[in-house]
Design a protein around this nucleic acid. Structure first.
Lengths: 202, 202
DNA sequence: TATATTACTTACTGGTCAGTAACCAAATTA
DNA sequence: TAATTTGGTTACTGACCAGTAAGTAATATA
């Protein structure tokens, strides 16, 4: 068993580096064409190798998808575990998190995590993927609860609003284009301002 | 050429009724397993018929997907064209629309429209589907602009906020369950209240 | 009562694609 | 310099699956 980011037994740094290139090419094609419409031959072709070469780095197409998701989810979780500090309001921490989240889901791995649903994975991988997602949701719901307590967030249902915030920001992954008017940080800030302050006059 | 909802040449009402049953069964499976993982055999099985029977109602799997999307998009567009009236603010019209939209995307056809991306369609169908989606976006952006003018909506970028609102509400389609705590109308109203009034204390 | 239409069926085909077996050349190591 | 490891290659297989050809039984129609 290799850890998600560590180097597998007996293989060195150059192996890991190449593996990441392979995964990145895969993620890009999954995002552009959908998981099922991106073939292993397609992925290999963009790397100028032949299909069997890919099996040197992953033992199945599903494993590639799972590991891509694990990397993105792992990074988000790490961020989330360290973002809370007494020095700022929970609302500000939440803002910081969703800016980072948006930056992540506008890159290949993060985007793949959002676009390609865990339903495509096998039973075991699906369970682990869903568990990670739930953990992240719980962290955010907690942060919202803290925000209500410290007076930086209006009273609301933390679980539902956590869902809503991910719904809001994840949507960006579906339409974001690198050559668009706004970069991910700007989009996230705009979303945060508008929905944070409220859309409606009252 | 049959119109999306009308009865095709020479076929009666019972044909159309059965066709809708077939499409509904297809939509349900597309939503549960994803378009590529739901086979024509699977769809046929849930209807207790064999695969070729399906081709009596649609000439390809792609056509089923396209028509499901057309029905859902057509209904939304119809609603949107009739929702604006001088008797209420644009903000209230927008609220009404997104409640209806949420109810739609929590049913099989609407959900299918959100979950299954137009990238899976052939070139011509994809173009038509994307055009419908853009039209709907423009209508909503217009309504937001009217809301800014009539003073019911805070100044913002209507195009971006239209995107954001669809991002927000479409997310519901990914996690909604019929046996959950809240029904679609309640979820939509909660989302509207929280994001309409603003999440943050200030 | 002959004819046509409706709503299917059984049996099959052809293409696509994930994954494998076996081999190889260049670099590294003993 | 022999042996091993690394990072591939060519050639193949087997399963799956959309779509088709041809037939049929029941119902409606003329």
């Amino acid at each position: 068993m290799s850890s998600v980011l560590g180097e597998p037994k007996g293989k060195g740094a150059s192996y890991s580096k190449r593996k990441l290139e392979v995964f990145k090419a895969a993620a890009k094609l999954f995002n552009e064409r959908g998981f099922n419409n991106a073939t292993m031959d397609d992925i290999a072709a963009t790397l100028n190798v032949t299909k069997p070469a890919l099996y040197y780095y992953a033992k199945s197409k599903d494993e590639i998808l799972f590991e891509i998701g694990s990397i993105a989810l792992g990074e988000a979780l790490l961020l989330l575990e360290n973002i809370f500090t007494e020095e700022r309001t929970a609302a500000d921490s939440l803002h910081l998190f969703f800016v980072s989240w948006t930056e992540s889901i506008c890159q290949e791995f993060g985007r793949c995590m959002v676009l390609v649903k865990p339903e495509l994975l096998g039973p075991e991988s699906r369970k682990r993927s869903k568990f990670s997602r739930r953990t992240i949701h719980h962290h955010v719901a907690n942060l919202i609860q803290i925000g209500i307590s410290d007076g930086s967030i209006r009273p609301c249902k933390p679980d539902l609003i956590s869902l809503a915030l991910f719904d809001l920001f994840n949507g960006i992954a579906y339409w974001y284009q690198e050559d668009g008017l706004l970069n991910p940080t700007e989009i996230a800030n705009q979303y945060w301002c508008n929905f944070g302050q409220g859309l409606l006059e009252n």
